[in-house]
Amino acid sequence: MEVRTIKVFTTVDNINLHTQVVDMSMTYGQQFGPTYLDGADVTKIKPHNSHEGKTFYVLPNDDTLRVEAFEYYHTTDPSFLGRYMSALNHTKKWKYPQVNGLTSIKWADNNCYLATALLTLQQIELKFNPPALQDAYYRARAGEAANFCALILAYCNKTVGELGDVRETMSYLFQHANLDSCKRVLNVVCKTCGQQQTTLKGVEAVMYMGTLSYEQFKKGVQIPCTCGKQATKYLVQQESPFVMMSAPPAQYELKHGTFTCASEYTGNYQCGHYKHITSKETLYCIDGALLTKSSEYKGPITDVFYKENSYTTTIK
């Protein structure tokens, strides 16, 4: 009895394709271990004539594949690729409408935090270190965002349907971005203890939790000093293409032309909904596939993004 075979390709990165001759009487799992086709788990399936010449994702289970996976995804987590594939199996079914010149995501599976993050990423200057993220990001900007969303979920250790947080998501993504040249110098002034300067680099240099107003941050924000008295913390120097200011959701007025974009969060910790506000020729609110415009805006804002380049204080 002759062994019926077909020729397929296996890959971990969709760049390096490895030619395989597979036995049609055995499952993919018996031949390769966990195997995925377009995100779908085909591990328990036997090869079919229609699979001839198709590319299958496999887990990096030998040295060659491990090197290829690390170079593309910059992670050695053995569960990463499987999590990416199972997320992709959902995100490829989502709709990605162009809204006001940006790629958004039609609401499904509690994905409003991903839509808000995706919209924000198209408006701030950011370059990702893992080629996987950078490639998928370019495709997302062009309207094909399924891979990018699935990668975000995998890097953030999230599953489809789980509630997510924009600030946490951005923080994970910033860790995989090139923020080497970003720098922030802060000064804390206390009447009792004097003053202390701190220099922050990388992710810490672009994120701040405690106030939404970048102007206020430049002037000074009140913080408790270690001595128990009130101290003032203010920005001395900022070198970065953008800054992200966050605070627990509270009524906040966004003035046209003073910011790049913002995240609105309605609801409580267990259950809520994100919308995205962007400042173009007027203010726009993007909620999944829905767009509304207004000249002014007041609502429960939790993150505001500002364009920056270089700032030095005039406070002496």
Rank of each mutant, 00 (worst) to 15 (best):
T5V: 12
T10Y: 10
V12G: 06
V12Q: 06
H18D: 07
V22L: 12
D23N: 11
Q30M: 13
F32V: 14
G33F: 02
G39E: 10
T43H: 11
N49Q: 00
N49R: 11
T55R: 10
Y57E: 05
V58R: 07
V58Y: 02
D62L: 06
L65I: 06
F70I: 04
E71T: 10
Y73E: 05
H74V: 00
H74K: 07
R83Q: 09
S86H: 11
H90S: 13
K95H: 15
V99R: 09
N100H: 11
C112W: 00
L114R: 05
A115H: 04
L121W: 04
Q123G: 01
E125L: 04
K127S: 11
P131Q: 15
A132V: 01
A132K: 00
A132R: 06
F148V: 05
A150E: 06
L151N: 01
N157M: 08
N157P: 03
K158W: 00
G161F: 02
L163K: 15
E168S: 14
E168R: 15
L173T: 03
H176E: 00
A177M: 06
N178R: 07
L179P: 09
S181H: 14
C182Y: 09
R184L: 03
V188A: 06
V189Q: 06
V189E: 04
K191M: 10
T192F: 07
G194T: 03
Q197Y: 05
L200I: 08
G202H: 00
V203E: 00
V206S: 03
M207D: 02
M207W: 02
Y214V: 05
K219P: 03
G220A: 02
Q222I: 09
Q222A: 06
C225H: 08
G228T: 06
K229S: 14
Q230V: 12
T232D: 01
Q238D: 06
Q238S: 02
E239D: 09
F242T: 00
F242S: 04
P249H: 04
Y252E: 04
E253D: 12
F259D: 04
E264C: 10
G267S: 15
H273A: 02
K275G: 05
T278V: 10
L283W: 06
I286W: 00
G299D: 04
T302S: 15
D303Q: 00
D303G: 06
D303I: 02
Y306C: 01
K307T: 13
